[in-house]
Design a protein around this nucleic acid. Sequence first.
DNA 1: ATGTCAGTCGTAGACTGA
Length: 262
Amino acid sequence: MSYHGGVVIIASWNVNSIRARLEHVTTWLKSRQPDVLLLQELKGTEFPADAFRDLGYEAVAVTQKAYNGVAILSRSPIKTVSTALMGDEADSHARFLETEVNHIRIVNIYLPNGNPPGSENFAYKLAWMDRLERRMRAWRTSEIPVLIGGDFNVIPEDIDCHKPASWIHDALFQPEPRGRFRTMLGLGYTDAFRTLHPTEAGQFTFWDYFRQAFSHNRGIRIDHFLLSPPLAVKLVSCVIDKGPRALEKPSDHTPIVVELDL
DNA sequence: ATGTCAGTCGTAGACTGA
């Protein structure tokens, strides 16, 4: 499939263990047939590349034991550009994968959660965002268009959670990460979902497992696609597919799907 | 503080992270 003159579908899904969610992911791939799927929270060193190859997807995965882990599946060849976020040689978390697929820079991120606020985890999150911002500045000057997708672990605005009061003590809602997210938009990147649905409340990508959060739609929008200007003008649709969150044994996140007419 | 789920270590259930 060529991206020239066609519609490309790119999806992102934090699966909370690829081993526990393999059936969900393969079933979803067969029904939705995205060109590219970004996965986060693989949670283990084993990655079932064969299962995806059988469905026509090439895969590149960055994994570690027990935690984190990101992968990109694609029906077109993937050129791996970087498997780590520049700026801290000591950072060994599997949270970043930069690739080139059909002349688009596709970057998959699993941004640190950072809870609780004020902790070492929180400082790591902010530093990680600063490092990402530096890359995003650098990418602006290159020819190739950029899509950054994944679990940002940031609730951008009050409209992106069911009730701000219940998130004010959470790292995902603090002014510092939210400010950094706004800075990224200020660099010229477009939040694909919010741009197409500027006032739509109750649109979430994550719901806690506790207290029937999903059935009450008490969630947050933390999985995002950011597009550089040449891709933003080709944005056709961006939707959240709540289907997989309603299945038995779901991930706490559900897929977000963006459509670009290139 | 609570709630639930997945992985680890190591064979039960406490622990960590989310």
